[in-house]
C-alpha cells in the first residue's frame, strides 16, 4: 500500500445546472490531518459531499485506499472505511444516544481502530452520562460529539469533518481539538474543513485553501501561517 489514503483529481461538481467545483485536486496521506480552509460558500461542504457520493452530479477521479470511489453510492463508500461528519450534525433527534451510535455501527476492519460505545464514551465523557437521552434534547456541543462518535462506530480509516468547531463554545472547541489529535494517534486520517484558522492550525499538518470552487493554495500549516498574502486574499473577511 502506498502512503496515499485519498487522492482526488479534477473533481467537478454540479447542483442542477450550477457548476460548483472546478478541477479540485486534493490528497491526504495515511495518518495525516489535513485542513480545507475557505470562507462560507467557497465549496468546502460540496467537496465533502462529492467525495461521499451525496452530490447528484460529479465528475473526476476519487481514489480512497487504492479504490476508485467516484461512481460508488454513499453507503458503499462509508463501508469502505470513509466516515463523514456533516456540518449541521444531523443527529437522529428521535433516537437515543445509544441508538444513534447503533445506526453508525459497522463490523470492525482488519486494520485500524475498533470502536465500541465504551471507548467512545472515554473519548467524549459527556456522552456517557446521557446514553438514553434522545438526540433532540442535547446541546449543540453534545450533538457535535455524538455525530463524531456515531461516525467512528463505523471504524473508519479516514473521516471527513465538516466545520467541527462551528458554533461551539471555546471549551468545547478545545475538547474537539483534543479528540482530533486522539484520532490521529489512533492512525485515523482526517480532513477537516474550517473557517477558524486558529483551530485548524492547532490540529492540522497541511492545509488547502479553496475559493469559489477552486483550490487556490496548498502547503504545510506552518507555511500558511507565515503567508500573510494568502490569508488576507482567501480567508479573512
Amino acid at each position: 500500500m502506498t502512503g496515499q489514503m485519498l487522492t482526488i483529481e479534477k473533481l467537478n461538481s454540479f447542483y442542477g445546472r450550477a457548476h460548483i467545483l472546478f478541477d479540485v485536486a486534493l490528497e491526504a496521506a495515511r495518518g495525516e490531518v489535513v485542513a480545507l480552509l475557505g470562507r462560507n460558500g467557497a465549496g468546502k461542504s460540496t467537496t465533502f459531499r462529492s467525495i461521499m457520493g451525496l452530490v447528484e452530479s460529479r465528475r473526476g477521479h476519487i481514489a480512497f485506499a487504492g479504490q476508485d470511489i467516484s461512481r460508488r453510492p454513499p453507503h458503499e463508500i462509508a463501508r469502505l472505511g470513509l466516515g463523514y461528519v456533516p456540518e449541521d450534525r444531523r443527529i437522529f433527534t428521535d433516537l437515543t444516544v445509544m441508538e444513534n451510535l447503533e445506526v453508525g455501527r459497522q463490523p470492525p476492519r482488519r486494520e485500524g481502530a475498533s470502536w465500541t460505545p465504551e471507548r467512545l464514551f472515554a473519548l467524549f465523557p459527556n456522552l456517557a452520562e446521557m446514553r438514553d437521552r434522545p438526540g433532540g434534547r442535547m446541546s449543540g456541543g453534545e450533538q457535535q460529539m455524538l455525530t463524531i462518535a456515531r461516525t467512528l462506530m463505523g471504524n473508519p480509516a479516514m473521516i471527513l469533518l465538516d466545520e467541527p468547531s462551528e458554533g461551539l463554545a471555546p471549551r468545547i472547541i478545545e475538547m474537539m481539538a483534543h479528540a482530533i489529535l486522539e484520532l490521529k494517534k489512533e492512525g485515523v486520517t482526517v480532513i477537516l474543513s474550517e473557517q477558524n484558522l486558529h483551530f485548524a492550525s492547532v490540529v492540522s499538518d497541511r492545509a488547502y485553501v479553496i475559493e469559489k470552487g477552486r483550490i487556490r493554495y496548498q502547503g504545510t500549516m506552518k507555511e500558511l501561517a507565515a503567508d500573510e498574502d494568502v490569508r488576507r486574499a482567501y480567508l479573512t473577511l
Binding site: M52, P74, H75, A78, P86, F92, V103, G104, G154
Partner: peptide, 14 residues
C-alpha cells in the same frame, strides 16, 4: 427510524 428522519445521513453511515 433513523431513515425515516434522514435518509441521506443514514446512507452516509453505511
Amino acid at each position: 427510524r433513523a431513515a425515516t428522519q434522514d435518509r441521506e445521513m443514514t446512507a452516509a453511515l453505511g
